[in-house]
Amino acid sequence: MTDYIQLGYLDLLPAALLVIFNAGLSILMQLGLLRVLAVSVIRMVIQLSLIGLILTWLFDSANPVFILGIALVMLLLAGREAWARQDKKFSGIWGYGIGTGAMLMAASLATAVGLGSAIRPDPWYMPQYAIPMLGMILGNCLTGISLGLDTLTATALRERQAIESRLALGQPRLIALSGVTRQAMRTGMMPIINSMAATGIISLPGMMTGQILAGVEPMQAIQYQMLIMFLIFGGTGLGVITAVGLGILRLTDQRHRLRLDRLQ
């Protein structure tokens, strides 16, 4: 299985009609989703078209400087999205830096493990492997870190009196906030855990499906998907633990006081 069916833009029209049909239902049922749906579809088409042109150029050039530049842009944009998804944000550079720093460490490590241990492309920075792998890991890290930090700040605000009581009784800050920490980490990791539990029986992941449609042997596509899921979970878990840990240190000080004034 090596051949794949090539698509043209006209081939996308029947599938696009399903979106138009749903837009019509939104108008008919007065759901108020037409504008949001239209903006989302237009953004998707423009973004995918642009990234397609960029990746085509990147694959042809295979320049490590350009590849690292694209990876850095992806990371910075992911950090901004993680920051924007939090209801209560840390003030100052910490609001952006905690999530972005955790993603940089976790996604870079997971991508390096995948490229260096299993795939081993030559050269190691081949963009057709490095960029898609980094993108999948970053996307899941973004979700986990944003959920973890949002849960951390919201729970700390809600349980402020209980936390301050424990601190007043002499508990160290890490012990006093241990329950909040566990809840934030569990919330951040739960989406990828649920995704792994459903993969293969309830859902067929997009990467595996895309490889099969492109002509890759099913068992080979499954092995690639297993690799990616392991890397995603490893990166997401490490990113959530790092981000929540840094968040706990920022929410307290060395005198073991709760510092909710450091939130916006």
Rank of each mutant, 00 (worst) to 15 (best):
Q220K: 06
G234N: 03
E81L: 03
M44N: 09
T236C: 12
G200Q: 05
L33S: 06
M189G: 01
M103E: 02
L10D: 13
M105K: 00
P127C: 06
S91W: 00
S49K: 03
I175Q: 15
L13G: 10
Y4C: 05
A130P: 03
G234V: 01
M1G: 06
Q171C: 09
M1N: 02
L260D: 10
L249A: 11
L142K: 04
F230K: 00
T56N: 14
R120T: 14
T236V: 13
V19Y: 08
G234K: 01
Y125E: 00
G69V: 12
S146K: 06
L147H: 02
L227A: 12
N140Y: 06
I98H: 11
M44G: 02
R255Y: 10
I46N: 06
F66A: 15
R186A: 14
A106T: 03
G52I: 00
R255S: 14
T155H: 08
G206H: 10
G101H: 07
V41R: 09
E81R: 01
I98C: 08
L10E: 13
L55Q: 03
P121F: 05
L231R: 07
G237N: 03
R85N: 06
A62K: 10
L18W: 14
L152N: 02
Y129F: 12
V73F: 05
Q211W: 01
S117F: 14
M103F: 00
M136R: 04
I5H: 13
S40L: 13
G79M: 08
L48K: 08
L258Y: 03
M207T: 12
R166C: 10
A16C: 04
T209F: 12
V73M: 04
G144H: 02
A176F: 04
P121S: 04
